[in-house]
């Protein structure tokens, strides 16, 4: 199925979860369709067609 990860189109398996996309939660946060999903819920969060996933971390900034 087709989703977007950080704005880039990506094809993932039908059964894919957030965990299959982002294996490690260390210093990383995830939003699914504009809402934050806590790391504890990544395993059970199934992805759907056209989902938009954001994966972020700390970067330099003032």
């Amino acid at each position: 199925m087709n989703i977007k990860v950080n704005g880039t189109p990506r094809v993932v398996e039908e059964e894919a979860t957030l965990h299959s996309l982002v294996p490690s939660a260390r210093g990383v946060a995830v939003a699914l369709n504009g809402a934050v999903v806590p790391a504890a819920a990544w395993h059970e969060t199934r992805l759907s067609e056209n989902d938009a996933v954001e994966v972020v971390t700390a970067h330099q900034g003032g």
Binding site: S24, V28, E54, V55, V56, T57, A58, Q60, G61, G62
Partner: peptide, 29 residues
Amino acid sequence: TVSVRRTSDTERGGLLDMLRALGVRILPN
């Protein structure tokens, strides 16, 4: 302070690890 930006590297956050090792309080913007 740090910013929060998209990443494709979910391995290790280099800057974050470094700041944590230095023991400073981190303020995201």
